[in-house]
């Protein structure tokens, strides 16, 4: 009996020790990979900037339209010569296979400067084509003011809006449009506060430095992710 307990304990201790070592080695690269992932998405979607939006990310509690519970949105503010040029943040919309997470970039007028699909569970070859730039570019330049809205939202052509859906897939583009509309509304409502916080934001020392050298470089500003992982 004693021997059984000892051998199991030794095996578990050795495993825990080994894993702690591996974790110590991989922790920093994993955090860096996540940061780069966010940075790439932000670069794709924001208007040109010369600061470090990821290092200076704001964590804003917002109350989404029609809801009561506040949720925290990580907002990346792009600045050029100390002046904000646009903001990017992750939004979610319900697609065919689950939630689609989209990085939405808007300029200060609320016009979409770019979107990028971060995560989705759509059908390969059909709905999954939403991640192609040939689709995401269709949102560029749209805003709540210059588009044909359906019930206050951007919508695909099939639903009476003006966004071209994909061949054989309407539900996925519809999910993207819903998520993007949600984001545009959040932006128009919180625009003032976001810009105000961005101005006073983090210490001036970190403005304009290389990515990764800001005081917040160590933390992980991960976009909102689907609950199913």
């Amino acid at each position: 009996m004693g021997r059984l307990i000892i051998s199991l304990a030794v095996a578990c201790f050795a495993a825990a020790f080994g894993l702690a070592l591996v974790n110590a080695v991989t922790e920093a690269p994993i955090a860096e990979q996540r940061r780069l992932e966010v940075l790439r998405a932000v670069e794709e979607t924001l208007p040109p900037f010369d600061n470090d939006p990821v290092g200076e990310a704001l964590h804003m509690p917002v109350i989404p339209p029609g809801e009561e519970v506040p949720e925290t949105v990580t907002v990346y503010v792009g600045e050029r010569g100390e002046e904000p040029t646009g903001v990017a943040f992750a939004v979610k919309g319900e697609g065919y296979g689950g939630f689609i997470t989209v990085m939405l970039g808007v300029d200060l007028q609320g016009v979409i400067s770019g979107i990028q699909i971060l995560e989705h569970l759509e059908t390969p070859g059909l709905g999954a084509n939403i991640e192609k730039s040939s689709f995401t570019v269709r949102f560029k330049g749209k805003s709540l003011e210059n588009s044909r809205l359906v019930a206050g939202n951007l919508a695909v052509i099939n639903d009476g809006g003006d966004i071209d859906a994909l061949t054989g897939a309407t539900i996925s583009p519809r999910g993207v449009a819903a998520g993007v509309s949600w984001g545009l509304k959040i932006f128009s409502e919180y625009r003032g506060r976001i810009l105000e916080e961005a101005r006073e934001g983090p210490s001036p020392a970190s403005t304009g430095t290389e990515p990764g050298t800001g005081p917040d470089a160590g933390q992980e500003p991960i976009p909102v992710r689907g609950e199913d992982r």
């Binding site: 495993a15 894993l19 991989t26």
Partner: peptide, 16 residues
């Protein structure tokens, strides 16, 4: 325990 440890190792390494 042995198998799960090596799986965690490869999971972390691939993630990094």
């Amino acid at each position: 325990v042995v198998i799960a440890s090596f799986v965690t190792v490869i999971d972390l390494v691939m993630n990094a």
